[in-house]
Design a protein around this nucleic acid. Sequence first.
DNA 1: GAAAAGATCTTCT
DNA 2: GAAGATCTTTTCC
Length: 202
Amino acid sequence: VSDSLVKIPDQWLPLEGDFFAKDAYVLARELLGCHLLVKKDDVWIGGPICETEAYTQDDPASHSYRGESLRNRSMFQEAGTIYVYLIYGMHFCLNFSSGAFGRGDAVLIRAMEPLFGASVMNRGSSAKRAKICSGPGRLCAALGIDRSFDGQKVGESALSVWRDPERHPPIRVFNGPRIGISKGLDRHWRFGIPGHPSLSRP
DNA sequence: GAAAAGATCTTCT
DNA sequence: GAAGATCTTTTCC
């Protein structure tokens, strides 16, 4: 608990719904360097986001491509709605709905630096400290994010995102093809901070 | 080290 | 019945 965040620094700004109300591939880039925090036992655990991906309704790789369903409903809600789904039967993935209400756009959070509370994070394995939140499934496991977060709003639940003027915007950002998909490979909507030790992959 | 396999469940064909 | 926005462990250079 000693490495958890007890008080949010005064200079940090909470990100509200309007920050998320933009094109997903713009939001994906702008979320880099922002702190993702989850409240656990009266303190915050989390750290700065270092890798994201964008998905849109007209994108064949997106869950929303074939319209709204019971699972992807949160993608179509107002910007800043949390979308969590189960993948491969065992891992959860965290997304934030973006764009206008009714549009199935979202940003997948792929990796984060475990800056606060690494010692109390659920770690699925004996991964190196810098890597315990590297990958969408591992990130959710570490922070205890599951389907119960789905449909909630950023900042109105145990989960919040903050802009830290000292880390945001990052100096450099890379982008390239998204990971683990077979369609929409021409859209280079994976974004990350170059050389960051907590990337899911180089 | 890299590659392959196994775990496990929802969605769509 | 197959594929999927994944990760861990095992197996093989």
